[in-house]
Nucleic acid binder design. Structure first.
Lengths: 150, 150
DNA sequence: TTAGATGCAAAGACTTTGCGCACTT
DNA sequence: AAGTGCGCAAAGTCTTTGCATCTAA
């Protein structure tokens, strides 16, 4: 951990630049987010943090996530029905959530470029690419469905 | 109310065809949804229903909304952070929610046709047009923002 | 030293569920 | 008459907040 070029170090320096305090809890949240393969719910982040630092409370996690979001370090999105998910802001992408199996796949935000231009020119609406979260049915569940109808 | 061709009548007949019972509460929910200009939260529906029928409880509203959704009478969408919103299924459209002023505008689902095709061919993902709800910044708030930066 | 950060516990927003009575069919 | 649907109240999930204590700077 704390390898040169590690995202954790960059997060720490952003916290310092904002004149906020660098604490064990914030470092651990940063670590968890940097190590995460995809997006995590607040609850998942809490569990992961508590494996490293058992005394960090959920309310602290929420406060840290809010601060990180204010600083532009992370973004959150609401997928389907459940809790919000968080991930580092660096990787801008969209989310496709399957209503059947609840799995979410991430796709490059470039898929929304045309839509974004259309909404801009048609409605003057600026699409937030961080937040794009769409519902539907994934390929696998479509296949299962078509087989059961056969 | 209950004019010939009224959506309420159609909803009632759908309930009968499904061998479900037609109650005062269900009629009133149908009435409120039919009269609503746009989409309503469960809470807003509850308030509107209670103006007509004060004894209908919130839990009944949730149960009725669930039944109506199972019957394909209504659809719901999650806009931004808050509660889910419901509207009659007949009018398929997308939602653009402004993160600044929280207002939601409805747009024809045709704006998502290209995206839908792209997601289908790129990922095998079938977009649910009922559920499309996007976040961003509306024209008015963009203008306000640009003026404050001037 | 001292102001900001945390832990704990309580509250808040939104939604679901269990139970016994009422009402639709 | 039979059984679905309802009202009430309690619980459940996710998130925020108040307050006393602790700690980074």
């Amino acid at each position: 951990m704390a390898v040169p070029g590690n995202p954790v170090d960059e997060i720490v320096s952003r916290i310092r630049h904002a004149s906020k305090r660098v604490t064990v809890a914030k470092r651990t949240v940063a670590q968890v987010l940097a190590d995460a393969p995809g997006h995590l719910s607040a609850d998942a982040i809490t569990c992961a943090v508590q494996e490293l630092e058992p005394d960090v409370s959920p309310s602290t996690i929420y406060r840290i996530l809010e601060e990180f979001e204010d600083l532009g370090i992370i973004v959150h999105a609401h997928l389907g029905q459940g809790a919000a998910v968080f991930h580092l802001a660096g990787t801008i992408h969209g989310h496709l959530t399957c209503e059947t199996c609840k799995q979410t796949i991430e796709i490059p935000s470039s898929h929304f470029d045309d839509l974004s231009r259309d909404l801009q020119s048609s409605f003057g609406f600026e699409l937030d690419l961080h937040h794009v979260a769409l519902s539907g049915t994934c390929a696998r569940c479509l296949e299962v469905r078509s087989q059961s109808h056969a």
